[in-house]
Simulated assay, not measured.
Amino acid sequence: MTQHALSETPIEELNPGWIGMPIEVDDLQGVAVGFRLARYERTMVDNTRTWILYSDGSPWRTEVRAGAKVRWVGTVPAPGQFVSPQPAPPHSAVTALPQQAQLSPQSWVTPTPGGNY
């Protein structure tokens, strides 16, 4: 039987393999926010390493500083084993329009056949 547990990982270990994962972090005001990670940026703000995390779906962002913890639900590993986060499968793919196409709010992404939009 698989057991699930909340795991905690330092923000410094965040990498592109985590894109699409549902995660939870405490923002700069100490509020716990949970979302599916769409993308992130590493930057310096006031000489402090800062990660700007963007949500999937209805896009918004939150900032965390070095030392923050990322929480995610994973399986409980057997003694002596490590379980790394696994990203969720993508919802659907999008394709860019040819350059000669006229741009409009609806033209930024084109759904692939069978996509849910």
Rank of each mutant, 00 (worst) to 15 (best):
A96G: 13
E63G: 04
V70Q: 12
W18R: 00
Q100E: 08
A101K: 04
V94W: 07
S84P: 14
S107E: 00
W18A: 08
V83E: 14
I19M: 09
V45D: 13
N15R: 02
P90R: 01
P59R: 04
W72F: 01
T75G: 05
S107L: 01
G34A: 14
R39F: 07
E12Y: 00
D27M: 04
W108E: 09
Y117D: 10
M21P: 08
Q29V: 00
T110Y: 00
G114Q: 11
T2P: 04
A96I: 03
Q102A: 15
W72Q: 01
Y54D: 01
P79G: 02
Q29R: 15
M21R: 01
P90G: 00
Q106Y: 12
M1E: 03
D26V: 06
V83Y: 12
P105A: 07
D27C: 05
W51K: 05
Q100T: 06
R49V: 11
S58D: 14
A101Y: 03
L37G: 05
G57Y: 04
I11S: 09
R42P: 00
A93Q: 11
S107N: 07
L14T: 03
T75M: 06
G34E: 14
P98H: 02
F35I: 09
T48R: 11
V31R: 13
H91R: 01
W51T: 10
A68V: 03
S104A: 14
Y54F: 05
S55D: 07
G80P: 05
T50I: 03
A38G: 06
Q106N: 10
I19H: 07
V70C: 13
V109S: 14
T95P: 11
E41P: 06
P111K: 08
V64S: 07
R39H: 08
G67N: 05
P98K: 15
V31W: 09
P16A: 11
V83K: 01
V83A: 08
V64F: 05
R71L: 11
P77I: 11
N15A: 11
P16N: 13
P90T: 06
Q86G: 06
V33Q: 04
L103C: 12
A38L: 12
P16Q: 12
L97T: 12
A93Y: 07
Y40F: 02
P113C: 06
G74V: 13
T43R: 01
E8H: 15
E13S: 13
T62N: 05
D56Q: 13
E8N: 15
P85R: 07
T95E: 02
F82M: 14
P113D: 06
Q102D: 15
G74R: 08
L14R: 07
P85C: 09
L97A: 09
Q86R: 10
I11A: 09
V76Y: 10
Y40W: 12
W72D: 03
E63Q: 04
A32R: 07
S104F: 12
V94I: 10
L14M: 14
Q81L: 14
P22T: 14
G17R: 05
Q81M: 14
Q99F: 07
S58C: 12
R42K: 15
A68Y: 05
P16G: 09
W108S: 10
N116A: 00
T95Q: 01
W51S: 02
A66L: 02
F35H: 10
Q29H: 14
F82W: 04
